[in-house]
């Protein structure tokens, strides 16, 4: 079954090519091909792109997406197979919360949620010990006893934080998210020190199938400002994942507007999460970027 994400026209496919140019901005990172080692970087990030993950009508191809997920996990964990990679991430006795994102305009694709759940269960985790949730995480019994979290969300511009990131995606674990809005959400990294999160997030997945690079109006969304990038970014350290995604978003903004158009407000919570809260390298020189597929 396909899931609709918006119609893809010939023009937006041209946009995918622009996205490829955008992705070239991440070339500043230490880039290696699939499975190749690049010394001892402080953070490893996988960028995988498959144009065929989106059908012409914009719907998600679940099987392609599942394969992308598994390719990415194998590359990230430097394992011989996806299953071996998943086994490094979760154990059969883990209780796993899959922290998703339900923002109606650009939600985590259900096909991706299902694929993650399937792989987690295939490792041996009991079905009753796996849950997918977003706004209900604080009252979800599985999340309340979770020993492991998998953090997955689409990337988009965000009114208060500049970007909606993996770092920010755990904000639903607190009672008053708006308390973190000050100074362009600079202190979001502090969320990751909360006991319900600290040390539990095994994998971060930034969904870049149709990322949003600009927002207008009260609802902060326009189909004009998403494009079929057809990618996923995976990593164990959220700041490294988000920093990589942020460079792609910035590049696409520059391409679209024909001038340098900084993300506003500046998503400095990413750099701060890395430098102050130890959530991963954000300087591309300190990120080992593994490109797969069309990336």
């Amino acid at each position: 079954m396909k899931e609709k994400t918006g119609r893809i026209t010939r023009r937006t496919f041209v946009g995918t090519a622009a996205g490829a140019a955008a992705a070239s901005l991440v070339g500043g990172s230490r880039v290696v091909g699939g499975g190749e080692s690049a010394g001892a970087p402080s953070s490893r990030v996988v960028l995988i792109r498959r144009r065929e993950v989106l059908a012409e009508d914009g719907s998600v191809e679940p099987e392609v997406l599942h394969r992308m997920l598994n390719e990415g996990v194998a590359a990230l964990m430097q394992s011989e197979s996806p299953r071996a990679g998943w086994k490094q991430l979760v154990c059969p006795d883990d209780v796993v919360g899959i922290k998703s994102n339900v923002w109606t305009k650009l939600a985590t694709p259900p096909a991706l949620e299902r694929a993650i759940r399937k792989e987690v269960e295939a490792v041996g985790v009991a079905a009753g010990d796996v849950a997918v949730d977003d706004r209900g995480v604080r009252s979800n019994p599985v999340f309340q006893r979770a020993t492991a979290l998998i953090n997955v969300r689409p990337m988009r511009t965000h009114h208060w934080s500049g970007l909606g990131t993996c770092i920010k995606n755990v904000i639903m674990f607190v009672d008053q998210p708006s308390e973190y809005h000050g100074d362009a959400c600079a202190s979001l990294g502090a969320l990751w020190q909360l006991p319900q999160i600290a040390g539990k997030v095994r994998l971060n997945i930034l969904v870049m199938l149709t990322p949003q690079f600009h927002g207008v109006g009260p609802h902060s969304f326009s189909k004009r400002f998403v494009w079929p990038f057809c990618g996923l970014i995976l990593g164990t350290e959220p700041a490294s994942v988000d920093a990589t995604g942020a460079r792609i978003i910035q590049a696409q903004r520059n391409l679209f507007f024909g001038e340098e158009r900084p993300i506003s407000p500046p998503p400095h919570h990413i750099e701060i999460a890395g430098s102050r809260y130890g959530l991963g390298a954000t300087d591309p020189d300190n990120i080992e970027l593994i490109r797969l597929g069309d990336a």
Partner: peptide, 15 residues
């Protein structure tokens, strides 16, 4: 509101 200020001009100590 300080949050609105931060959306347009963030600087340390604005509080």
């Amino acid at each position: 509101d300080p949050t609105i200020l931060a959306a347009h001009l963030a600087f340390d100590g604005a509080q």
